[in-house]
């Protein structure tokens, strides 16, 4: 029997699907890719590093291979005092964000400046590097490779730092722990200005991955949370058990991010803490149990650094 082959139908189908993908992927892709990075986008890339989700350098999302953001008040090479400067340290072997490896992502102007003034083409992942975000007199932002321009190497910068912010590793915690199922990182354009702050701009995301906008909001937007609440103490209590500071909160406890030991090396006994806490909620004791201080290399520290860095 001669079967119908549905040739015309197949051609039409192929055409329709390709045309649809042309309009919904190719055209938006070209448009979005033509946008130049803002200063914020440069800051985010250098803070979060190559990738905050699953990646070779960090397959189990433990915060490995991430840069460190530091605040300096003296020049690490000469020891002279300088104005408060934020630097992004990539110790040897830390993967660079996409904007540095595929400079087209930065946008035309930013790329040119970063190469001519910033010397980013001289930075190497194997040797490590220290970056700064600068703007020129026309307010165009660019990345400066301070290792090449000022001779700052990553170890010296880490040693000279007044403050180290592990926000890159913290964003990995944010992704892994699914904070974005409840919180958004996207104040909406139509409202939200008052309570959650300025919505982001088109160029604020270049090089960031994943963007974790979040889709259903069951909790406050966090894009600018560090600007409205910068208290480390509040965050510590709130992450250990949100109901210590906000009795009606539905946020889960993140006490397990404290790890085995607290800041002074004592073992943390979560089961015992929970027992005392339950006694407190049942009115059997007046005060809730003491919240342990997190140690400097605990996941809780990464996360809190990330949250407070969201200005």
């Amino acid at each position: 029997m001669a079967f119908r082959e549905y040739k015309i139908g197949c051609y039409m189908f192929g055409f329709a699907l390709s045309f649809s993908m042309f309009v919904t992927i190719f055209l938006p892709g070209v448009d979005i890719s033509s946008v130049s990075s803002t200063e914020l986008a440069l800051d985010k890339q250098l803070t979060y590093g190559h990738e905050s989700g699953f990646a070779y350098e960090d397959p189990f999302l433990q915060g490995h291979g991430k840069p460190v953001k530091v605040v300096l008040s003296k020049d690490p090479a000469t020891g002279a005092s300088i104005d408060k400067t934020t630097a992004y340290v990539f110790p040897a072997g830390t993967p660079f964000p996409s904007g540095l490896t595929h400079t087209k992502i930065l946008g035309e102007d930013v790329k040119l400046l970063s190469e001519s003034l910033g010397k980013i083409d001289q930075a190497s992942e194997e040797a490590g590097a220290v970056f700064l975000v600068q703007t020129n007199d026309k307010d165009v932002p660019y990345v400066e490779n301070a290792t090449a321009t000022r001779g700052w190497n990553s170890d010296a910068v880490l040693k000279a730092a007044d403050e180290t912010i592990m926000a890159g590793a913290g964003k990995t915690m944010f992704v892994r722990e699914g904070c974005w199922w409840c919180h958004t990182l996207l104040p909406e354009q139509t409202q939200d200005w008052q309570s959650f702050g300025r919505p982001p701009l088109l160029g604020d995301f270049n090089g960031e991955s994943p963007t974790t906008f979040g889709s259903d909001r069951k909790a406050p937007d966090l894009l600018h949370v560090g600007a409205r609440n910068s208290s480390k103490e509040w965050m510590t209590l709130h992450f250990f058990n949100p109901r210590l500071v906000q009795p009606h909160s539905i946020m889960p406890r993140y006490d397990y991010l404290w790890g085995e030991k607290d800041a002074s090396g004592n073992t943390i006994d979560l089961a015992k803490w929970d027992e005392e806490y339950m006694a407190y909620t049942h009115g059997e004791s007046i005060y809730p149990p003491e919240v342990p201080e997190y140690s400097a290399d605990s996941e809780a520290r990464y996360l809190i650094d990330f949250i407070l860095n969201l200005k």
């Binding site: 992927i25 088109l202 963007t211």
Partner: peptide, 22 residues
Amino acid sequence: LVGNLPEFFHLTGLNEAYMTWW
């Protein structure tokens, strides 16, 4: 296969966000 291009080729930024929802 197309929707996961951001992961295969490490696309970033708004392209990644848009492709996620695509």
